[in-house]
């Protein structure tokens, strides 16, 4: 029972990170049909932000560095996404294979750049003193770092929700996602909306990266470790459907933690894969399907 709950706790934190990554992917895929293979490297970039802060300007305030890292990583990864979209992807909309290859190339380049900058060795972000410790609840260990990660994800999700549902910029994003042509002929600045979407989606990966750095060592392969699961989350959740992505992240995150506990990491992933393949047999459009009248969306 206790191991079950502990696994659940680990699973939920993993799920919350996958959620941030998957959400970013659905934004860029849902809106522009871009499968961004470099999205994982935005996680990596975000993960190095607290490390760089702790080893340079904020070496005297390593706890504060972590707090500063969240907004900064959002900006860094967001700008990386923005540059990728403006410089490369904008020229190849509607050519999914080309974008796949180009973003894969960018992903390799970014990993190499990280190796040159930080060496191929893994790095540790020093856990701030205020996050050292744990609570024991019915025999389950709730480490403060993972609670903090959950809190950050919840706050970020609330922020995203407010942006998407309450602000004009978020509404424009949803409109372009749902019917790009209609948005364009209605005078919405689709190109500017695309840039915003890419910035936001990539920025979320940056936040996820800082979260990742708090629960384990980071390295140039940090992005690769998460991106595959995140893609699965997006596929199971149903492309472009936010509610589906939340459910799928929870499902796959906990599944991964449980199976990994019972077997090994590699087998755990294989089991998740098998589950996804089976799942798509029964619900090819993802968990949530929303029927509209006479409209193919």
């Amino acid at each position: 029972m206790e191991t079950t709950l502990s696994n659940l706790y680990i699973g939920v934190t993993l799920a919350s990170i996958l959620l941030l990554v998957g959400l970013g992917l659905t934004f860029t895929f849902g809106q522009m049909g871009v499968i961004n293979m470099a999205h994982g490297e935005f996680i990596m970039a975000g993960a190095y932000v607290p490390y760089v802060l702790q080893t340079s300007v904020l070496s005297g305030a390593r706890g504060g560095a972590v707090l500063v890292a969240f907004p900064l990583a959002f900006l860094v990864a967001g700008v990386m996404g923005l540059v990728l979209e403006r410089v490369l992807l904008r020229r190849m909309y509607g050519r999914p294979l080309d974008t796949l290859l180009v973003t894969f190339g960018v992903s390799l380049m970014l990993q190499q750049a990280a190796k040159d900058l930080f060496s191929a060795n893994n790095k540790d972000v020093v856990t701030p003193t205020y996050l050292r410790g744990q609570w024991d609840l019915f025999g389950v260990t709730l480490t403060h770092t993972r609670l903090f990660v959950l809190l950050v994800v919840v706050l970020t999700m609330v922020g995203v929700w407010v942006f998407m549902s309450r602000l004009a910029a978020g509404r424009r994003m949803r409109a372009v996602m749902q019917n790009r042509e209609l948005a364009a002929v209605s005078g919405l600045p689709t190109s500017r909306v695309d840039a915003t979407t890419f910035f936001l989606g990539s920025g979320l990966a940056g936040i996820a990266g800082v979260a990742v750095s708090l629960i384990g060592p980071i390295g140039t392969a940090t992005g690769t470790a998460y991106i595959l699961s995140a893609f699965l989350v997006v596929i199971v959740g149903g492309l472009g459907k936010l509610r589906g992505v939340v459910l799928a992240a929870l499902l796959l995150g906990t599944l991964n933690a449980f199976v990994e506990h019972a077997t090994s990491s590699t087998l755990g992933r294989a089991a998740v894969f098998a589950f996804v393949i089976l799942f798509l047999q029964f619900r090819p459009n993802g968990i949530v399907s929303f029927r509209t009248r006479g409209l193919a969306v």
């Binding site: 509404r171 949803r174 409109a175 749902q178 019917n179 209609l182 948005a183 509209t292 409209l295 969306v297």
Partner: peptide
């Protein structure tokens, strides 16, 4: 053509 709307809005 086709009474188009943004369906989820």
């Amino acid at each position: 053509q086709g009474h188009q709307v943004f369906p989820y809005l």
